[in-house]
């Protein structure tokens, strides 16, 4: 009868570190399998909720309560024609109307809060 050459080494790395290694090695499937094993066994004191959150398969749903968007060709044309003057800035556009611009996205949002546009604005960073 054959004998193992050596005993299997006990795993010293935490589940979290092993999952991270798998993700960084482009082995997301393996990371999911290891996470499932860890959650099933449960004999560890690690908080794996962060990995559970990011590795869980997504389920989406159609949302009929959200208004449809519209053709953004005028916005795109505006960006093409005016990009030089707004490099390094966020612009908020509805059609060919510039609603706000700033290097700070927060400032653009604040401006849109003060002057709520009638239609959904398109935000774009011109680099």
């Amino acid at each position: 009868m054959g004998q193992p050459l050596r005993k299997a080494e006990p795993e010293t790395q935490s589940y979290s570190d092993r999952i991270r290694e798998l993700v960084e090695s482009d082995m997301v499937g393996g990371a999911r399998l290891l996470l499932a094993e860890a959650l099933e066994k449960g004999d560890h004191d690690e908080d794996l909720s962060g990995w559970e959150s990011v590795l869980t398969e997504t389920k989406g749903r159609p949302n009929p309560d959200v208004e449809c968007d519209f053709d953004r060709t005028p916005e795109f044309r505006w960006i093409t024609e005016h990009s030089e003057a707004y490099r390094g800035q966020w612009v908020a556009l509805v059609g060919s109307e510039l609603l706000a611009h700033s290097a700070s996205l927060q400032d653009v949002f604040s401006s849109l809060e003060r002057n709520k546009p009638k239609r959904r604005p398109m935000l774009h960073y011109i680099d």
Binding site: L22, D26, M27, V28, G29, G30, L33
Partner: peptide
């Protein structure tokens, strides 16, 4: 999803 018959790979 994978070419290696390996469920460990990223899809």
């Amino acid at each position: 999803d994978t070419l290696k018959e390996a469920p460990e790979s990223t899809a």
